[in-house]
Design a protein around this nucleic acid. Structure first.
Lengths: 206, 206
DNA sequence: GTCTATAATTAGATAGAC
DNA sequence: GTCTATCTAATTATAGAC
């Protein structure tokens, strides 16, 4: 449930001798690069330097690799909604906390969240993930509505549109953010909040 | 180059007797539903009520179906940058024009743009599309920089981050907008501009 | 934990008739 | 413009040895 760090050290011996997590990380990187469907167990095996059969020792099927990655992302996102800062305080503060938390999770679990954002519901594993993601969205929309009712947010845009544009902005970070780049997660969260809440314009009321 | 309407009438005879455009539209719908890689020529044939071989009469290969769709999207987006409103006037007005134009293209060519936004560069066709899309982004970033130099936009966020968050917001519309829904393209563009330029907050300078 | 070998199925694509 | 039939290669997954 802690959302720091996505890459584990080998932790074990010298070389071959993968554990589940190490196999998963390589698989996730491949899924991101070529897409889940376009990544065959064959190229996955090449990347790992293993035979295809060896992968089946760690995961019973290809879609379980995806499932494990999606769960990791969803556990973290749902965790944000359960944090104290998302539960107590006025709605505007809780919403800001959730926005910061979502950016933090996105950055800290970048590969897993990246996969989550690309899921289309082809398999039962993917449909499960979509269901959990939709519930997360509903919870955020409720927060937006509360902040609006409170008078903290403008009321001339539909709350669902607001939530969608807001997370459109946040989620798009997965398409270009790379760890070790110039921006930190906190700075990125500041930028998102500044743009979303105060806007880009220097002239008021364009 | 006109970007209205994506669905053509049969225009021809009674039933089987597809033309290229009709085949393309069915293929694009399938690609969106299941993803390009997960859509086999077999299921495509079923959807069309044709044999696989018949599809090859209209398109020489599977990736040419994708290529035709991506070109349509890119032609329209590039067309926006060539419109008078994107060329003359101050930078802030030109940027607003491009944002409105991008939303308009997104809505009017929804299926094609949706596919464009999902391309990862697996094939040469996809890499070509990514190159064109990158150039579009560069042109918009230049506009953001000009608007900033002009004093119209806040200068405490990196222009590339601004462009990416802005188009993250715009492009995310493809994930939920459905024609015939409550929002019109113009209204949606208004919402995007309102949120991006003036922000959501009712309190100034949060 | 990894291997070789292979089963069973499906993929994209073509030939040639109508 | 569409068909049936077919090709080759690749796909996911399993069996069983080491």
């Amino acid at each position: 449930m802690s959302d720091s760090d996505t890459t584990r050290q080998p932790a074990k011996k010298g070389r071959p001798g993968y554990d589940q997590q190490a196999v998963l990380d390589v698989a996730v990187a491949a899924f991101i690069e070529h897409g889940y469907d376009a990544t065959s167990m064959g190229v996955l095996a090449s990347r790992l330097g293993l035979s295809k059969a060896a992968i089946y020792h760690h995961f019973p099927a290809k879609d379980q690799l995806l499932g494990a990655a999606l769960s990791e992302a969803l556990d973290s996102l749902e965790g944000v909604l359960a944090e104290p800062g998302a539960i107590s305080g006025n709605a505007a503060a809780r919403l800001a906390h959730v926005i910061r938390g979502a950016v933090r999770v996105l950055v800290n679990k970048l590969p897993y969240v990246t996969l989550l954002l690309r899921v289309r519901g082809n398999t039962e594993v993917e449909r499960d993930a979509l269901r959990r993601r939709r519930e997360f969205d509903h919870n955020v929309t409720a927060l937006v509505e509360a902040a609006r009712a409170e008078g903290s947010l403008r009321d001339d845009i539909d709350p669902r549109v607001v939530t969608r544009l807001l997370f459109g902005m946040i989620n798009s970070i997965a398409e270009w953010y790379r760890p070790g780049g110039p921006e930190s997660a906190d700075q990125l969260a500041d930028d998102v909040l500044a743009m979303a809440l105060d806007g880009l314009s220097t002239a008021p009321g364009t």
